[in-house]
């Protein structure tokens, strides 16, 4: 049985930021998020309590029937990491466009110039992508790219290795070479709350090994990166993500996005997607 869009878990707030009841949207429907003493809650428009999970510093809810637990990120639990609440930014784009952009590295030299990429180091070498049927996730591995300043704690250019993981239709996890800890991976996530099909609230979150930067500096770095993406995301035509081939032209560098689109189609997740060329 294929699940409905309502049966997935979605982020709706930072645990550290939820206080007075806050009206927001989820999948086009009004919801209210709040906290009574230490109990976090979410209600739908009719006042019915929705299920909640507290994980990765965020409150998650499911407006339908959750079919399984919210995914986990075991790497994020290892000791010594800074858990970074980046906050949220609203973007006028499809939630799926926001995720797809997060999975893309070829834009680094042009959108995150001199930070995550720089000309002439624009080449994207072949990497591996697979749809993992057991976990129902999309993975890209052995992704390598030259970065002038890979993270707040990085100095000088290095070739950085990444793994990308689409853990649910609107949530992706990036594992990235960690300059101070060779052999370990920094964890950077993008959790997207679909407000509606063409508007989303994006909650980045990170679990980093970084003993040099202040929390404010780590937050600032990620907000800088995401806001550079925002000006792209609000200017793609069409606003929704085309799932059918023909409207947009992918190349080998886009293997992750090709797999993501294919997987969305396979699992029937078409909220925020454009199925027929307009």
């Amino acid at each position: 049985m294929s699940r409905s869009i309502n049966d997935y878990w979605y982020p709706v707030g930072l645990l550290s930021g939820i206080d007075a009841p806050h009206a927001t949207l989820l999948l086009g429907a009004d919801i209210t998020v709040g906290r009574t003493h230490s109990a976090y809650w979410v209600t739908d428009a009719a006042g019915k309590a929705l299920p909640t999970i507290k994980r990765f510093g965020h409150l998650w809810t499911c407006p339908g029937t959750p079919m399984d637990d919210l995914f986990t990120i075991p790497e994020a639990d290892t000791a010594g990491r800074q858990l970074v609440d980046v906050g949220s930014v609203r973007v006028k784009c499809s939630p799926l466009r926001a995720v797809e952009n997060f999975l893309d590295i070829a834009h680094f030299p042009f959108v995150h110039t001199d930070i995550l990429g720089a000309e002439p180091h624009t080449e994207v070498a072949r990497y591996n992508v697979d749809i993992r049927e057991d976990a129902n996730e999309v993975w890209a591995t052995k992704v390598k790219f030259f970065q002038p300043q890979a993270a707040k704690s990085a100095e000088g250019g290095i070739t950085t290795e990444y793994m990308y993981r689409v853990a649910s239709p609107t949530c992706a996890v990036l594992y990235k070479t960690c300059p101070p800890r060779p052999g370990e991976w920094d964890v950077i996530t993008l959790f997207v709350q679909p407000l509606n099909e063409e508007w989303c609230e994006v909650w980045p979150w990170m679990a980093l090994y970084d003993d040099d930067s202040t929390m404010a500096e780590m937050v600032s770095f990620q907000q800088l990166i995401f806001m550079q993406d925002r000006s792209i995301l609000e200017n793609q035509i069409p606003t929704k993500l085309p799932l059918d081939p023909g409207m947009e032209v992918p190349t080998q560098a886009d293997l992750t996005s090709i797999a993501y689109r294919r997987w969305l189609k396979k699992i029937g997740y078409t909220y925020g997607a454009q199925l027929v060329a307009a």
């Binding site: 550290s16 906050g87 929390m215 404010a216 937050v219």
Partner: peptide, 10 residues
């Protein structure tokens, strides 16, 4: 001196 304006309201 970077201030965590959002989300921490520093």
């Amino acid at each position: 001196h970077t201030v965590n304006f959002h989300p921490a309201r520093e």
